[in-house]
Design a protein around this nucleic acid. Structure first.
Lengths: 342, 342
DNA sequence: GGTTTTTCCGCAAGCGTTTGCACATCCATT
DNA sequence: AATGGATGTGCAAACGCTTGCGGAAAAACC
């Protein structure tokens, strides 16, 4: 057991020069003579010297690490997002410290604590469903750790975020159905209080009322996104007074359950009844009766964009913008987009 | 802009005591008087003091961070795995530094470099498809950074790994089909040189030859896992001399493509032809003709187990087992398991 | 040859924390 | 009253690296 790992000190001793010279030589500092510079660099290579980042992190108060907190890593949406995040981070020479909250506020707080302790340079968060107290985010301000929220955004002022606007996609979806001749269009929405549900509904209303039909609340049903809930919602919609010829569903999974339900009711898919949904999961290629179209939310791009935004924020910070008094907040909205299948 | 963040020094000054006393008081060291101990702790709370982990990391040469390198975060298998990894790490008070190789050897090397620089305590890797030079892993030995491989294991001796044995599950699958009366059983396997393909084939041969049928190589076709490849393979199998009544496919995606192909050939699924596959993706619940059964590979559990193993390794290391001379290598095999659908 | 400029390098402080050791104080034991 | 053991606290080094500053040596000028 010798010196496991060579340090700058070791090099200095072997060459009989000072550590500062070695440090500068390694950084190609102009004030070091060519001769010593190459001597140092050669020995460094020979010893396989690698700077101890933890020392540098500590010394510079910067870790080149960004914390990422997501609700559920195994969900398709978030796993696509983390992929985009990692790619963007790697490109910007940052690394990703990862945590998943499992939609638990408690765990979210713990993770923030951990991230803070690790002195991440910045934080990327998609908040847990149940978070409605935002004090733990505030706590990061004194540490000067900027946060970029994405997808799931808390309703507080003065934050940076990246999100995807569902309204536009919803309007496109309805328009698409309209051009296909549908006039009675239903919607199976998510839980009423979810912001995502509200957006979809807004888009629905906006598209339906725009110089054509009027908004019939009976055509919109909320559900809890469980299979049972979806079945109930579908049945309610299809046995109602005005039976829709097309249905927009909260996401692809809902669509698939709804399709099954419709088939059990002896309806011909894409004939008696059409479906359009959100998310555009890869599985839609494989199902027997995929929705006709999906509103794509670009999770990869969202993650990527959020990361880029955060990194930009970090650059500014190190450029001497000592605090956020001159605060401009990034509010980046990606537009969702309807994607037709086959 | 004052002292953004309180340090131990700050507390010491305010209380007119030495930093060492503060440090010990904060750690409940027994040699500190109760009186000063509470004084310190109260002021610390009031100032919202939090230790600077980067300083501690540096000082202790330990980061409580484990590096994780996966080929593709957005793949269902790996996103389930990372979920298990994060959960296990969090439980053991470690955090996860994440990287994805996109199956590029180059990027894999870069990531290892980054992880090394960050001085992660240990590393968890599922190697890229194309990796066949393992020198970059060796480089970690002198840094005393243990590696646990999982799922995709390099073929080198003296390593720790966690993997899932596909043989057993394959045997179960064939047995299952056998009890259902099938005698001619085909297989659509992956690329020939993939270890995962070999294991499946081994299981297939083992089950087929065990006091029943004999192994007919014509019933096994390899494919490149693309949709086109799967279609070709399926057609070849179903138009062959001995037409199988059941087919085992490399994974669920292959199964879905194969099902489509079979249907185009006017075969009735689950009647003329049955399918069994691997992976057990959630989507199989939603497809019109899911495979009858899938061999589950427990990605979450694999990730979890690998992480636990790594953490155990780390404990031992800090317990003075200075190096791995007394090396016992963990080789942990989870058994795959057949899961019947509906 | 003296002066200025340039070139090159070392000293030392500092980042925040832990920890071995020495030291001081106090109380109890002889 | 001297000795001994607790009990509580401070000093200082160490972890590896960066960087402002000062200064020696070499090169350039008149």
């Amino acid at each position: 057991m010798k010196k496991q790992v060579p340090t700058i000190k070791e090099i200095a001793k072997q060459l009989n020069i000072s550590v500062s010279t070695v440090s500068r030589a390694l950084h190609d500092h102009k004030s070091i003579g060519l001769r010593t510079k190459t001597r140092v660099q050669e020995l460094a290579k020979q010893l396989q010297y690698e700077p101890n980042q933890t020392a540098i992190f500590f010394q510079q108060g910067k870790t080149f690490t960004i914390g990422v907190i997501l609700p559920e890593l195994s969900e398709a949406f978030f796993s696509a997002a983390i992929s985009g995040i990692e790619d963007a981070a790697h490109k910007g020479n940052y690394t990703v410290l990862l945590g998943q909250s499992h939609d638990s506020v408690e765990k979210e707080k713990q993770l923030i604590e951990t991230m803070k302790k690790h002195r991440v340079d910045g934080l990327l968060i998609s908040i847990s469903k149940n978070t409605n107290d935002y004090s733990h985010f505030e706590a990061l301000r004194r540490y000067n750790i900027p946060i970029v929220f994405f997808d799931r955004i808390p309703k507080i002022p003065n934050i940076h975020y990246v999100a995807c606007n569902m309204i536009n996609g919803t309007v496109q979806a309805i328009n698409f159905l309209f051009t296909k001749g549908h006039r009675i269009i239903g919607m199976i929405n998510g839980p009423e209080k979810l912001p995502a549900s509200k957006e979809r509904l807004d888009g629905y209303i906006q598209a339906m009322t725009k110089d054509r039909l009027k908004y019939d609340p009976a055509l919109v049903v909320n559900c809890d996104l469980t299979t049972a809930g979806v079945i109930a919602a579908t049945e309610k919609l299809l046995t109602g007074k005005r039976r829709p010829t097309a249905i927009v569903t909260f996401n692809d999974y809902v669509a698939l359950d709804a399709v099954q339900t419709a088939r059990k009711m002896k309806l011909k898919i894409n004939k008696d009844i059409c479906f359009v949904s959100y998310a555009n999961l890869p599985l839609t290629n494989y199902t027997a009766y995929p929705p006709m179209a999906s509103v794509e939310q670009f999770p990869y791009q969202q993650g990527q964009k959020a990361t880029e935004t955060l990194i930009e924020l970090l650059q500014h910070k190190s450029n001497g913008d000592t605090d956020n008094s001159n605060a401009t907040y990034y509010k980046i909205i990606l537009e969702s987009q309807l994607v037709l299948h086959e």
